[in-house]
């Protein structure tokens, strides 16, 4: 570890590598706090409406596929594991394994997005996209059911956007690692991406039971 850190580039504003690394990690955590609050606003909205409309939300949620949701949760949890492995090998300076697990993580992230795409497509076919063409039976529940699906698309859509950003970042990192770029010599870029990725996973950990597993 010691020799490896000595190669790391020190920015002018920092005194030493330890200070620089810790600054990046604290900075990332501070950013994640803003992300927690960002999703928090959506979760608060959802909770208020769910408490008020438990019955209709239950009815509406039956149009979501629990098996697909379950599968996607497994995919994301696994991708978190592979991301953790990427960080592990990056810390040990093993470039090949690092690249391998990063690619696996990306593949899992894409799997998640594809499955999500199928789910969205299914909603489209069923006429469950909120807006002028929204159809729901029984008709007297249409307003609240539309509220449920608005929130469903807002929450999973924002989450999917975060997954896409994660994939883009990982792609850049993979290329940089492949060409042995000096900026990915140390583990900090991977560690920060890892923190972000686990956060995306945590959001889904809450989204899955809240949206897919509503009790009657």
């Amino acid at each position: 570890m010691v020799q490896e850190q000595a190669q790391q580039k020190l920015s002018i504003q920092f005194e030493d590598i330890a200070q620089q690394n810790e600054s990046y990690i604290v900075g990332m955590w501070t950013f994640l706090v803003t992300e927690i609050m960002f999703f928090g606003g959506l979760f608060a909205t959802y909770l208020v409406y769910r408490v008020a409309n438990q019955e209709v939300f239950w009815e509406a949620h039956r149009h979501l596929s629990i098996p697909l949701g379950f599968f996607n949760t497994c995919v994301l949890l696994t991708s978190s594991l592979t991301m953790a492995l990427t960080v592990h090998y990056s810390q040990r300076g093993l470039r090949k394994q690092q690249l391998l697990w990063l690619l696996v993580t990306m593949a899992l992230a894409c799997t998640f997005l594809v499955v999500k795409g199928f789910e969205y497509h299914h909603k489209f076919v069923e006429g469950l996209i909120p807006g002028a063409n929204f159809r729901f039976e029984p008709a007297e529940h249409m307003r609240v059911a539309q509220l449920f699906f608005s929130l469903y698309f807002a929450m999973t859509g924002l989450h999917a956007l975060h997954v896409i950003i994660g994939v883009l970042v990982m792609t850049i990192l993979a290329v940089l690692i492949a060409i042995k770029h000096p900026s990915v010599q140390d583990f900090i870029p991977i560690e920060l991406t890892g923190l972000y990725w686990h956060f995306v996973d945590i959001v889904w950990i809450f989204l899955f039971p809240l949206l897919y597993l509503i009790p009657r």
């Binding site: 208020v48 409406y49 409309n53 909120p130 002028a132 539309q146 509220l147 608005s150």
Partner: peptide
């Protein structure tokens, strides 16, 4: 044209 906060569409403006 969704109704997240619009009372006419099931939402709550006070939220």
């Amino acid at each position: 044209r969704l109704g997240i906060f619009d009372p006419a569409l099931g939402g709550d403006p006070i939220l």
